[in-house]
Design a protein around this nucleic acid. Structure first.
Length: 491
RNA sequence: CGGGGUGUAGCGUAGCCCGGUUAUCGCGCCACAUUUGGGAUGUGGAGGUCGCAAGUUCGAAUCUUGCCACCCCGACCA
């Protein structure tokens, strides 16, 4: 286990920040709480986005785009929704600047005050449901299955690269259905897509579950989520899928005529994942040497480093590498040849380890004589000398091995860190000494949940799907309980 | 908004307590040479409103006051 991960919380934060900046994923910007996603980080996001987008389309969804600005009055139409987001909204009040009459630069023109203020969307339910009202009249218009890729703004007190920034990128799906049953099926379907993506692509095992009332999305009937476990023992909500019931349909008066010509409100879902997934990826797999990226998402899957003395050796290596790259690319493997002469091999080795490139191939004159190359894998840092014949296929297999190995390692960690607690003392001790998820009985009341949070800083992450029923006593109050739920300290 | 901390070159810093020539060092950057199998070496060079403003003083990175920004911890949260 890493030094940094067992260390103090502050050190871990520092390490996380430094790693993201050093690996070239992102950087803080001139704007408070906002970050610049750098090309390497964005390439990673694009890979995630493409795969998710493909799954959305396979399940019948279409992309669309709705406005960045939301009239203030829209936000207040759903009571719980406005309550949940009011405290973190950026508000546009004016539409013009002018020169300061005192000659000191530029000021907001007081003449240009907006009649109604605009909110920079913290999420798009309201503007979307306002639009859906005009799109939906009949059951023939349903289901309406829309997704949008967008940015949103939430004015959080404290920010943290990728995990919580003032502006972030995400996708938000918003669907309308004729029946509650169908909407719930959609909610679960999307949750499953997120879980599969996390596990198969990010190599990050997750627990699927449903949120308690306190942790539920503002305006939802039920919030389903995937929860992942970071290497420092804290949980991270990696995606959510909400069954909204008829709350937004009622707030925005979205009705449809069914086959019997009866008028009813539609049933809704919304679901989203964000660039937070990149933060999750970093904290799930990284080690003291830098990032460890799963091959399926790595912007660069293979890097080739030449080792040579003089032009003659270099051109012999170039020739071999170019044919090798063609073979790798033919198998759909993204490969970079770093023959930058201003960096030495050792520097490059360290650099690509920091960046989490899954496989490194070193080719030198010595190797060419023997028709071999040195292949190093990032996940377990082992090196092997492999024949150039059939190398591309071997690399492809190796990438699959690495993907699997990273997942298995994370899975073992997760499985080993879901611990049962039956007394309050044990609960606190586990949180402090071990971390991870604590499976414990809870009396089901919001008050108890709140009290537990106050006393221990742990929240209910979820009630796992298919959770076994089991009679017990609440960890705090001793009141009767019908099942265990998962607690953790979380990001 | 509370607690803690930091602002000096692209990055990291010394100097501040105890005011005094041309602001220290390392990394990085530019040029040349030698190098290249785990973050090379030498020589030369460029790069600074010492966070901002006012004050004290013959003289301020250094002292005083005010302000600003950022980071960490807490409340809030995808």
């Amino acid at each position: 286990m890493s030094k940094v991960i067992t260390g103090r919380e502050e050190d871990y934060s520092q390490w996380y920040n430094d790693l993201i900046i050093k690996a070239g994923l992102a950087d803080y910007s001139a704007v408070r709480g906002c970050m610049v996603i750098k090309p390497y980080g964005f390439a990673l996001w694009e890979n995630m986005r493409d795969q998710l987008d493909k799954r959305f389309k396979e399940t019948g969804h279409q992309n669309a785009y709705f406005p960045l600005f939301i009239p203030k009055s829209f936000l207040s139409k759903e009571a719980a929704h406005v309550e949940g987001f009011a405290k973190e909204c950026a508000v546009v009040t004016h539409y013009r600047l002018k020169n300061d009459p005192d000659g000191k630069g530029i000021i907001v023109d007081p003449e240009a005050k907006l009649e109604e203020e605009l909110i920079v969307r913290p999420t798009s339910e309201t503007i979307i449901w306002n639009t859906y009202k005009t799109w939906i009249q009949s059951y023939r218009d349903l289901p309406l299955l829309i997704n949008q890729w967008a940015n949103v703004v939430r004015w959080e007190m404290r920010t943290r690269l990728f995990l919580r920034t003032t502006e972030f990128l995400w996708q938000e799906g918003h669907t309308a259905h004729a029946t509650a049953h169908e909407a719930i099926d959609e909610t679960i379907q999307m949750l499953n897509i997120y879980a599969e993506f996390a596990e198969e692509w990010m190599a990050m095992p997750v627990i699927k579950g449903v949120k308690s009332v306190n942790e539920r999305f503002a305006g939802a009937v039920d919030t389903y989520c995937i929860e992942a476990l970071m290497q420092d023992g804290k949980a991270l909500q990696a995606g959510t899928s909400h069954f909204l019931g008829q709350n937004f349909a009622k707030a925005f008066d979205v009705k449809f005529s069914d086959k019997e010509n009866k008028l009813d409100y539609v049933w809704a879902t919304s679901w989203g994942v964000s660039t937070r997934l990149i933060g999750a990826l970093v904290m799930a797999h990284s080690d003291d040497d830098g990032l460890v990226l799963p091959p399926k998402l790595a912007p660069i899957q293979v890097v080739i480093v030449p080792i040579y003395k003089g032009d003659e050796q270099k051109s012999a290596i170039d020739e071999k590498v170019h044919s090798l790259m063609a073979e790798l690319k033919a198998l759909g493997i993204s490969v970079k040849y770093d023959d930058d002469d201003s960096r030495r091999p050792g520097w490059k080795f360290a650099e690509y380890e920091m960046k989490g490139v899954p496989v490194r191939i070193a080719v030198g004159a010595r190797d060419l004589e023997k028709n071999v190359v040195e292949v190093a894998r990032r996940d377990n840092k082992t090196k092997e000398t492999i024949s150039i014949d059939g190398l591309a296929e071997n690399i492809q297999n190796l990438l699959n091995d690495i993907q699997e190995n990273i997942y298995n390692k994370a899975k073992t960690y997760l499985d080993g860190n879901v611990t049962k607690a039956d007394t309050w003392e044990e609960f606190l001790r586990l949180l402090d000494e071990k971390g991870g998820f604590i499976s414990a009985h809870w009396d089901g009341t919001a008050e108890t949940e709140e009290k537990i949070k106050e006393l221990s800083k742990a929240t209910i992450r979820c009630i796992p799907l298919n959770n076994p029923k089991e009679d017990g006593k609440c960890i705090l109050t001793g009141n009767p309980s019908i099942e265990r739920v998962l607690f953790a300290r979380a990001y």
